[in-house]
């Protein structure tokens, strides 16, 4: 099976600079040795606490942030090695939907200008055809045509996110990286946007990398899910594998925190002790060991690699090694 996107050993380290001479005194390993793949037409969910590096991973794939090391194969081509001009062309196939629909749209451009921009930048179609295309895209994402000359400040959050999606769709990409696309929206609007994304996936055979911290949204939309902790991938599996038989103690704890919409159902809530350690000074061995209820000797010394558990289920935990 060929993958649409394959990420191998992706790292992004931010230097910590101090003093007048801006000497590097340490590294924040925002993304540390992350590997995963995305198949054509599937949705890969990426979950984890704030600050675990999921957004950085998403941005590094598009090279909006230059990765420190690692390979990113998109349809067999290594994105990391591309020159700037080639990269601009490659970005046509990979687009991004941003978290904050208020901040990610230029306040001084109309809806038409915003949706038209990607087409214009890549010199596609004539001016007239572009206008047609804009109307078409507005209809696809469920925006009324008559809004075409309005400015972002005149729209609600959900509508703005639709503009953002239309912008991402304009170039007919194969992969859309959605960086918490619904977490800034009201719950009632969230479902509309998620459903829109699902409809679009079916219609255009899109692949998504869906970054979120809301586990129920990820469960709803994803085919496979990756769990990140402190810049590392701790568990990857299909939705069923991961949600029904979580292997990593961290995944278990995360899932136990999801509210069940049934007041009679009883469940053991696993409460983790302590805070997330600083990524500038991660614990030795397994990054999760200071908070792990099942940690033992080996976890403090040796960093666990991803172990194949069968099916498409992988976990980085010594309990299975």
């Amino acid at each position: 099976m060929s993958y649409l996107l394959e990420v191998k050993g992706l790292c992004k380290h931010f230097p910590i600079k101090k003093g007048v001479l801006r000497k590097t005194v340490g590294l924040v390993k925002a993304v540390d040795q992350v590997s995963f793949y995305v198949k054509p037409g599937e949705t890969f969910g990426l979950v984890g606490e704030s600050g675990c590096g999921k957004s950085t991973t998403g941005r590094a794939i598009l090279r909006l942030i230059e990765p420190t090391s690692g390979q990113i194969y998109f349809e067999g081509e290594d994105i990391v090695k591309l020159s700037r001009t080639h990269l601009r062309k490659a970005r046509r196939d990979m687009q991004m939907v941003f978290q904050d629909p208020y901040a990610s749209l230029n306040p001084r451009m109309t809806v038409t200008e915003l949706i038209e921009e990607p087409l214009q930048v890549h010199g596609l179609y004539s001016t007239k055809e572009r206008r047609e295309k804009v109307f078409e895209l507005m209809e696809i994402v469920g925006l009324n045509r008559s809004y075409h000359d309005r400015y972002p400040h005149e729209f609600s959050g959900g509508q703005r996110q639709r503009i953002g999606i239309a912008r991402a769709l304009a170039l007919q990409p194969k992969l859309i990286i959605a960086d918490e696309p619904v977490s800034a929206l009201d719950v009632s609007i969230q479902s509309q946007v998620v459903n829109l994304m699902e409809d679009l996936q079916e219609e255009f055979n899109l692949s998504y990398i869906f970054i979120a911290h809301d586990l129920s949204v990820v469960r709803h939309i994803s085919d496979r899910v990756g769990v990140m902790y402190l810049g590392r991938m701790v568990e990857i599996g299909t939705k069923q594998e991961l949600y029904q038989e979580p292997a990593h103690p961290y995944t278990e704890a995360l899932l136990s925190a999801v509210p069940i919409p049934n007041p009679k159902a009883k469940r053991e809530r696993i409460v983790l002790k302590g805070d997330v350690p600083s990524p500038a000074n991660p614990p030795t061995g397994c990054a999760f060991h200071p908070r792990c209820p099942k940690a033992f000797e080996r976890c403090m010394q040796e960093r666990p690699e991803l172990i194949h558990l069968g099916g498409e289920h992988y976990v980085a935990c010594h309990l299975y090694g």
Partner: peptide, 26 residues
Amino acid sequence: EREFILSAKSIGCSDFQIIFKHVIPN
């Protein structure tokens, strides 16, 4: 540092386009 600059980059805008279409008007 605003997100719409990142958005412009992800779409494939060049530095020139970003400065004149997104930075200067703002």
